[in-house]
Structure formats: structure tokens, C-alpha cells
Amino acid sequence: MALLNIQNLSVDFKTAGGLFRAVDSVDIACERGEILSIVGESGSGKSVSMLALMGLLPWTAQITADKMEFDGKDLGRMSRRERRKIIGKDISMIFQEPISSLNPCFTVGFQIGEVLKLHLGMDRATRRKRSIELLDLVGIPAPETRLSAFPHQLSGGMNQRVMIAMALAGDPKLLIADEPTTALDVTIQAQILELLVSLQREKQMALILITHDMGVVAETAERVQVQYAGQRVEEQPVLDLFEAPHHPYTSALLAALPERAVGRKLPSIPGVVPGQFDRPTGCLFAPRCSFVKPDCHKGVKRQPAELGHALCNHPIASSGSKTSAAGGAA
């Protein structure tokens, strides 16, 4: 049984112009000890779906789901109190901006200790011991002295390590990392990714990595879920996805990578992601798709697993024939 099983999750935001659908009937499943990557551009709803799971969305959000199961327990039907016991302990999350995720008024030691006190009820001495262990685990040199440091005294990379230490405090079964390295420099990004993967292996926890960076996905993920405009458009193991993308969007996105370019011109995807007021009927990618057919504007169907669960009426069957043309019509 999957550790996390979300079915048909939708999130709507109340805005001045009416309801805005940020997440549109998304299924997310994650096994124990697996690295799942959710990849998508801005506005693809990749963060919102995870924030909905954590209960971190503002009051303007309306969340509906058929199922929101974690470890056999239904989070959707739980009381807020019961839910709080799981969130932050069994499921924890780290964010993009490590500096703003930490409270600048308190020391690193205090903030880690707070998590330990809240979720594990440890006393002062054990908290200190465990905090040092955690900082050591995430590769912070001289952890005893760093306990009394304030976040602004540490670099971005160090702060992200502290965030990871806090997230690991309750020995989570699932760690959600929302763009954990986007704000960091390349060499520091490599360190943090390495750390996340090695911790994931060591602790056998599941890791959901939300990112927009195809390079990060390729190097860390095992399974990839591609989102576009709030919908899950494709899902495949990482090797297959990069080898043979089935959805035209995935294919075009991969072709737009500068490192895959052959000539001076990149094959780009025309247009922009649909917003609140120009949401097309039928397939949401249809206005930008180079394989669009008349029936795409009417409706769209989900393909079987062999075709990467692609949400597309005319998926790309094999990699050789169509990918080169994907998105090429610039």
C-alpha cells in the first residue's frame, strides 16, 4: 500500500475575478522510501497540492479530494487536532527560501528544540543532545557551537541544512522538499541534493521533490510527475520520461532545454500557460500544442500506464518519430 495516496485533489482560490482553479483533479501516490519528483512551471499547482496536504493554505482556498490517505489514515476526515500530530512529525516540509523559513529572532538550537518539544515531548537535556545529533547528521560542522547561532549568522546553504535538520526532527516517513535548492548557488545546490538523497536512503523515508529544474529531476528522482496548469499531464519513471516522453508538453519542455539544443535556435513552446481568464475548454495545452487536433478542444482523456498516464488524446507513441517536431513550430 502506498504511503501517500491522494486522489482527485482540487484546490480553488476565491479571487476578485471569481474562483481560480489552482489544482485540477490531481492524483498523487508515493511509496515508502521512494523519491517522487513533481515538476512543472510556475502556475502548474505543484506547490499548492502539497500545501493543501499539509493544511497550509490560506482561508480563500477550497480543497476537495476523493481521498487523502497517509499511512492508511484519512487526513481529509481527521480533526485538525489529530492532523497536527501527523503534520510536522510524520510528514514534514522544507521550502525554497531557507532564510525566511527560519525565525530571525531565535537561535537555531531553540528552533530545533521547539520541534522536538512539540512533537516528541523531550526534556531539555535530551533535546540538546538530539539537536546536536541532527545538526551533525545534516553535515553542519561544529554543531555544539552552531546551536547558539542566529539564522542571519549562517549562509543560505547552512540555513537550508538547519531546515532539513528541523524537518528530520520527528523522524518523518515523508519529506516534502519544495524547490529546496532554487535559491542556492550551484555548488551548494549539489551539496544539498546529495545530502537529501543520502538521508532519504539512510532513513528509508519517502521524498517528494517539487522543482522546475529538469536537471535536478534527472539527477535525483526515481519517478516523475509532470504538472501543467494545475493538472497532472504525465507520470513515468525518470529514465523513461527523459527517454520517451508521451505528452507533447513534456516532450516540448525537454526539447527547450538549452543543453539539448542542436542549433542556435531553441525549439520553444509558443504562448504562455493559461491563466484564470483564458482557460481553454478541453485540453489545457491545446492552444500551445503542435500536435493539436480538432477533438482536443472538446475534451481530453487519460492514457494508460504504458503511455505514461498522459492526459492527452494523441500521445506520442515512441520517442523517435515525433519528438524532434515537438514544439518546433516556433
Partner: peptide, 21 residues
């Protein structure tokens, strides 16, 4: 070598820089 390559088939060996800037 630290720049992630969008090619899962070629998992290169990274030169890990220790320490911070």
C-alpha cells in the same frame, strides 16, 4: 560538474566542493 544534467542515463560523478563560499 555540479550543474545538474538533464540526462538521467548519464549519472556523472560529481566533484563535490566542500565548504561554503
Amino acid at each position: 560538474s555540479a550543474t545538474p544534467k538533464a540526462d538521467p542515463a548519464k549519472k556523472s560523478h560529481r566533484i563535490m566542493l566542500t565548504g561554503e563560499l
